[in-house]
Computed example of a mutant assay.
Amino acid sequence: MKAFHAAFDKFDAVITLILEWICIVLFAGLTLLLTANILMRFVPLFSLHWFDEIVELIFAALVFYGAAALWVTRGHFSVGDWISGRIPNLRLRYVYRLFIELASLFFMAVFLKYSWELTQRADDVTNALQLPKAALYACMPIAAAIMLIYSLKNVLIEIGCIIDPVSGEQFRDAPPPATE
């Protein structure tokens, strides 16, 4: 299990860093666009007729890449794991967690399938900039693929914890890799 985690640690750090920087750049771009839109209302130097299309693209990418970043680092919100603590048998606790991870894996597989199909079928373009709509939707299958990989990783971790519950505990709740 140590080899599995060692192999994924660098990959985790790189993916997390990339997703964080994508989100930072997108948020900065969104801030600049919104500021420019406000300023253009008071000092109309030129038209921002393309504004809505770019904001839509940035918001979509920010939401899905941000969700993928949270999925990788296990930083997404949840109601908490209040059931695991009530299961006295350690192996059964991991079996329960495995079912949760399998449900997540199934959801990500469905999300990937349908977001890919949507992206593939999108053959129209935006009004102002004539950008392909597939560009607007591409963030969904990319983020879904990342989340699917990490859901699979989490399933494998839970299986490893079922096989060896004592050594598995140290990897199960390990903090996410540093991105500095």
Results as ranks from 00 to 15, higher is better:
residue 45 L to G: 04
residue 61 A to K: 08
residue 167 S to F: 00
residue 37 N to S: 11
residue 122 A to S: 15
residue 58 I to K: 10
residue 22 I to S: 06
residue 159 I to S: 01
residue 94 Y to P: 05
residue 117 E to K: 15
residue 5 H to P: 02
residue 19 L to N: 01
residue 86 R to G: 07
residue 140 M to Q: 14
residue 37 N to W: 08
residue 144 A to Q: 10
residue 24 I to D: 00
residue 52 D to I: 12
residue 110 V to E: 01
residue 25 V to H: 03
residue 120 Q to G: 10
residue 144 A to P: 06
residue 37 N to R: 15
residue 44 P to Q: 06
residue 178 A to N: 08
residue 16 T to A: 10
residue 124 D to A: 13
residue 71 W to L: 07
residue 5 H to W: 05
residue 163 I to N: 04
residue 50 W to T: 11
residue 11 F to D: 03
residue 101 E to F: 02
residue 143 A to V: 09
residue 125 V to L: 14
residue 131 L to N: 11
residue 141 P to L: 13
residue 90 L to S: 09
residue 116 W to N: 07
residue 54 I to P: 05
residue 157 I to Q: 04
residue 65 Y to N: 09
residue 167 S to W: 01
residue 119 T to Q: 12
residue 104 S to P: 00
residue 180 E to A: 15
residue 122 A to Y: 07
residue 162 I to R: 02
residue 124 D to Y: 08
residue 63 V to C: 08
residue 69 A to K: 04
residue 64 F to Y: 03
residue 77 F to S: 12
residue 105 L to E: 00
residue 25 V to Q: 07
residue 115 S to I: 07
residue 135 A to K: 15
residue 109 A to I: 07
residue 152 L to G: 09
residue 81 D to K: 13
residue 152 L to H: 01
residue 120 Q to L: 14
residue 45 L to E: 00
residue 81 D to H: 12
residue 162 I to C: 05
residue 150 Y to Q: 04
residue 176 P to T: 14
residue 95 V to H: 04
residue 179 T to S: 08
residue 20 E to T: 11
residue 38 I to R: 13
residue 34 L to V: 14
residue 159 I to R: 03
residue 61 A to Y: 04
residue 166 V to P: 00
residue 116 W to L: 12
residue 7 A to Y: 01
residue 177 P to G: 01
residue 30 L to F: 03
residue 4 F to K: 14
residue 123 D to G: 11
residue 124 D to S: 15
residue 38 I to W: 03
residue 87 I to A: 04
residue 15 I to S: 06
residue 94 Y to Q: 05
residue 124 D to L: 12
residue 35 T to W: 00
residue 114 Y to C: 13
residue 18 I to G: 02
residue 152 L to M: 11
residue 41 R to F: 05
residue 35 T to C: 03
residue 6 A to P: 00
residue 12 D to S: 06
residue 150 Y to H: 09
residue 174 A to G: 06
residue 24 I to L: 13
residue 108 M to Q: 07
residue 63 V to L: 12
residue 51 F to A: 07
residue 61 A to S: 10
residue 138 A to I: 15
residue 48 L to C: 09
residue 128 A to V: 14
residue 128 A to M: 11
residue 173 D to A: 09
residue 103 A to M: 07
residue 97 R to G: 04
residue 44 P to D: 01
residue 172 R to D: 08
residue 141 P to V: 13
residue 22 I to T: 08
residue 74 R to I: 10
residue 112 L to S: 04
residue 93 R to A: 10
residue 43 V to C: 02
residue 72 V to M: 06
residue 89 N to C: 05
residue 163 I to K: 12
residue 51 F to L: 13
residue 63 V to N: 07
residue 119 T to G: 09
residue 150 Y to R: 14
residue 4 F to Q: 10
residue 100 I to K: 15
residue 5 H to M: 13
residue 162 I to G: 01
residue 46 F to P: 06
residue 29 G to L: 11
residue 61 A to H: 05
residue 119 T to L: 08
residue 130 Q to H: 12
residue 99 F to S: 04
residue 142 I to H: 02
residue 127 N to E: 09
residue 171 F to T: 11
residue 105 L to V: 04
residue 38 I to D: 00
residue 8 F to R: 13
